[in-house]
Amino acid sequence: MKKLIRMRYTKWFNISRDGLSRNNPIVISVLGICSALAITNRVDNALAMGAAVTFVIIGSSLIISMIRNFIPTRVRMITYMVVIAGLVIIVQFMLQAFFPDLYSALGAYVGLIITNCIVMGRSEAFAAKNPVKFTFFDGLANGIGYTYVLVLIAIVREILAFGTVLNYQILPDTFPTWQVMAIAPGGFFVLGLLIWVMRDLTKNYDEEATA
């Protein structure tokens, strides 16, 4: 028990809490929303996107953390871009080779991982200043924090829009499916409500609201 309490003060614990809840990339920081909304009308798309983004975050954080002392500050942004773009091209090839269906479902949104602010943000805010072992863990925590929110949104949208989860029938055929959940507005509404729930549960309100 004592050991558990001491855990709360370690850097490991803080990194994982930041990624998973306190500074969750989607719900609290609201970064990387484009892909989070565009592809979450099916749970399998959300899982694939989450895995791809996690891989890119971990990979880019590791590489940048390793070379952080050699990058001149003036060209750091473009260096991050090139590292991230290289990893995204790898992801694209992997998806094309092993999961061609998912690849065509995700379409251009795989390429858009490059401009996902989470990846860039973690490189700039964390990987550029921290040793490799912490960056790996930070990348993992943020990747998982991103994936579980994506999957939550996707579950709600897929049940309401198609009556299924991962293509298993959940709701009876007589249920009138909500077309709107399969397209953009559904994504906006579900994310808005999810942010409301998460912020009320964690009592972590937007600074705009208290100002």
Binding site: V180, A184, P185, L193, I195, R199, Y205, E208, A209
Partner: peptide, 24 residues
């Protein structure tokens, strides 16, 4: 008067959703 938890970014998404409905 927006509820405290929804104010800020949460509410922005709801507004965006309504705008997206309009575009449809």
């Amino acid at each position: 008067d927006v509820p405290k938890g929804l104010a800020g970014k949460g509410m922005t998404f709801i507004v965006l959703g309504i705008l997206a409905l309009a575009v449809i």
